[in-house]
């Protein structure tokens, strides 16, 4: 296992992270002490079998869930001990998330969906133009005013990518971004993700089952049973 050494603050720094769900005899320890450092700009793949804790780890790293114990710093912002609302605010403009189920706002058009993170993060100046530009960057200039129900799966995921990158986050997370797509579309999406990451320079963490996809990352962290099994550079 090798970890790049840099004097610049790492994008992600986690020490002894644990996550336990439930209480009493029914409690389940999902993560059992994760130590992790990801430098800025690195592309990391998180792999492991089902139930290994990949999605749960990503939930902690994105602030969508709170660790039971341990410390976590994301883009120089301590995430440890923050409330739900504080985590939400911490995500704004700092973290972009692409999920397997797209999670677009169903009653908003593609353009409106991409604009939402700009509004939430206070980047309202020229927000419309920026949103258009993001959608153009993912090849959806002709779908600005379409609702999610009117878009194909691939198109929806493109919108999700545009939305995630619109506020220029320093870190991009993608959880099985091609899980709901056919192979050909999935490949297009992955290529797009990597291209956009290259253009923006964001740190990127991808959860995937796909070994080929993992091979494209600079580093692969393999999880098993809530622990890091291996951490290898490409």
């Amino acid at each position: 296992m090798t970890t790049p050494h840099s004097t610049v603050a790492p994008a992600i720094s986690a020490q002894n992270l644990t996550l336990t769900l439930g209480q009493g005899p029914g409690a389940v320890q999902i993560l059992k002490g994760i130590d992790l450092t990801i430098p800025a700009g690195e592309i990391v793949a998180l792999t492991g079998p089902s139930g290994s804790g990949k999605s749960s780890l990503m939930a902690l790293l994105t602030g969508l869930d709170r660790a039971t114990s341990g410390t976590l710093t994301i883009a120089s912002q301590p995430f440890t001990g923050l409330s739900e609302d504080q985590l939400a605010k911490a995500r704004r403009g700092r973290i972009g998330i692409v999920l397997q189920a797209f999670h677009l706002l169903p009653t908003m058009t593609a353009l409106e969906n991409v604009r939402v993170p700009l509004d939430l993060s206070g980047q309202t100046q020229n927000a419309d133009q920026r949103a258009r530009a993001e959608l153009a960057a993912v090849g959806l200039s002709h779908r600005l005013h379409h609702y999610p129900a009117q878009l194909s799966g691939g198109e929806q995921q493109r919108v999700a990518i545009a939305r995630a990158l619109a506020p220029r986050p320093s870190i991009l997370f993608a959880d099985e971004p091609t899980g709901n797509l056919d192979a050909a579309t999935g490949a297009e999406i992955i290529n797009l993700l990597f291209a956009r990451q290259s253009e923006t320079g964001a740190t990127m963490v991808i959860i995937t089952h796909d070994e080929h996809l993992a091979a494209r990352a600079q580093r692969t962290i393999r999880l098993a049973d809530g622990r890091i099994l291996s951490d290898t550079a490409a």
């Binding site: 605010k89 706002l105 169903p106």
Partner: peptide, 16 residues
Amino acid sequence: RPTLAALKILGATGRD
């Protein structure tokens, strides 16, 4: 709920 989930992912607080 899916909508609220999306808003939370994007950084909306409970108050928002």
